[in-house]
């Protein structure tokens, strides 16, 4: 490497500009680093966005139990559906397919889970509401989906859900579907 390389030669030209160029470059690097951070900031921002719009039916909870006025003038059909994610061998069912409720009334629903395997397992139910517009009106004081559920090998259990539909629910919504998908949460066990 005894031979010269042309870079020194060019370096001479740019050295004149160096302070200013270095300054601009530094700011741009900062901008790039900030945008990398912004990518991660999108995660909490997205959660906020979801809460506002009800996108994907994400429900935050639990809420304090508040006694609303009960709107007996209308009845909402609430359907419960359950899904097992791939690789989740539990039996997982809603014990009632649907209930009819008046907005404002507190209702309890029961779900059943059974671990048929020979190993202890941890499951996490992920809730989702359809139509997503209804999400913000579904209030839960208790839900098995708020935390991970542990079942020993062969163990089965009833799991409660206590919810109410906010009476401010827009009048065109007459059916709400509450979906729960059970995932194997062994990798995320708390």
């Amino acid at each position: 490497m005894g031979s010269h390389s042309p870079k020194e030669d060019v370096g001479k030209h740019s050295i004149k500009q160096a302070p200013k160029s270095g300054n601009t470059a530094f700011k741009l690097v900062l901008a790039a680093v900030a945008m990398f951070g912004f990518g991660f900031a999108l995660v909490p921002l997205y959660d906020v966005f979801c809460e506002i719009t009800g996108i994907n039916g994400k429900i935050t909870g639990p809420v304090e139990r508040v006694e609303h006025w009960v709107d007996t003038s209308r009845t909402i059909k609430v359907q419960f559906i359950t899904t097992n994610n791939a690789g989740m061998p539990w039996e997982f069912d809603a014990l009632q397919e649907q209930v009819k409720v008046h907005p404002g009334a507190w209702t309890q629903a029961e779900f059943w889970a059974l671990n048929p395997t020979k190993e202890d397992m941890v499951g996490q139910a992920v809730p989702s509401v359809s139509p997503s517009e209804a999400t913000e009106y579904v209030q839960k004081t208790e839900c098995f989906c708020f935390s991970q559920q542990s079942l020993k090998a062969g163990e089965g259990r009833n799991m409660p859900l206590i919810f109410s539909i906010d009476p401010r629910l827009p009048p065109h919504i007459r059916t709400i579907t509450m979906s729960y998908t059970i995932f194997d949460a062994g990798a995320f066990a708390e």
Partner: peptide, 8 residues
Amino acid sequence: AIPGYINE
């Protein structure tokens, strides 16, 4: 069709 979420 998205795992964990329900679309209609």
